[in-house]
């Protein structure tokens, strides 16, 4: 564990010292800002307010849910770009030899990379939280659903990090890593669609459990679901396990 923290610390320092991270963060913020302004403006139009009945419209569902969905979409790309350098850089600079001959295990190396990637991605997600929070002075915020949907978002982003860390461990090239990462991230969303194609009820049930959007929408609606938590944790664990095997395999390949 000590080794994992040392590696994570080094990676974090290098990520936050590189221009790449700030370019990614800047692009993300531009996308978020444009959509957020548009949806807040739409929300404020009187006819929209009238259509939704006496209570007025719900800020959470009309503005924040849209914003969070966009953050999720942007993170599919952003996490791929952040994680693409986790392993290829070590391999290209031959520093992987240093890690493998240091008194740390393959699990430490994997865990260190996972921590570094997750902290970076979560930092971006927390920046996106500033948008909903900025409305605290002008409107009434539903803290429950907002917190719940952000917890869901953080878990989902951690899944992307684990997946993208795995794809980056497979190759020496950042380009291959980023392309594989995007394919895997998008595939995660299509996994649930197999439910419609399956005939046996058991198969159907299994795929419905693997449906990311069911779990994600649950969190978005403000329902904290334990099954969702377990699902996301399983994805993170599964891909971290695969990465650990890949790291270990460099010893005997």
């Amino acid at each position: 564990m000590r080794g994992a923290l040392v590696i994570a610390g080094k990676d974090l320092r290098n990520i936050f010292a590189s221009p790449l991270f700030y370019v990614i963060a800047g692009v993300c913020c531009i996308a978020w800002t444009i959509l957020f302004i548009v949806s807040v403006a739409a929300f404020l139009q009187p006819q929209m307010q009238m259509m939704s009945g006496a209570d007025g419209m719900n800020l959470h569902f009309t503005v924040f849910a849209k914003h969070i969905s966009l953050v999720n979409l942007v993170m599919i790309f952003a996490v791929a770009a952040i994680s693409m350098r986790l392993f290829p850089d070590e391999k290209r600079q031959r520093t992987f030899d240093l890690l493998l001959t240091a008194p740390v295990t393959a699990t430490d190396i994997t865990l260190g990379k996972l921590i570094a990637g997750t902290v970076t991605a979560w930092a971006l997600v927390l920046v996106s939280l500033l948008y909903p929070l900025s409305l605290v002075f002008w409107g009434h915020l539903d803290w429950g659903p907002l917190a719940c949907s952000y917890i869901g978002l953080l878990l989902l982003v951690a899944c992307y990090v684990a997946i993208d860390m795995f794809t980056s461990s497979l190759t020496q090239s950042t380009v291959v890593a980023v392309i594989l990462a995007l394919i895997f991230n998008v595939l995660l969303w299509f996994l649930g669609a197999a439910a419609d194609a399956s005939e046996s009820p058991l198969q159907r049930q299994v795929f419905e459990h693997l449906n990311v959007s069911t779990h994600y929408v649950n969190f978005l609606k403000g329902n904290f679901s334990v099954s969702g938590l377990i699902f996301f944790a399983t994805v993170v664990f599964f891909f971290s396990f695969l990465t650990q095997r890949v790291v270990e395999s460099t010893r005997w390949r």
């Binding site: 000590r2 040392v6 320092r13 290098n14 010292a17 031959r94 520093t95 030899d97």
Partner: peptide, 24 residues
Amino acid sequence: PETPPVYGEMTVESYLKFVARLKG
């Protein structure tokens, strides 16, 4: 190793500190 395992984007001092920590 044959190729020195160094991180280009680190300074000499911070790199050596990292290795020392890594080695426990």
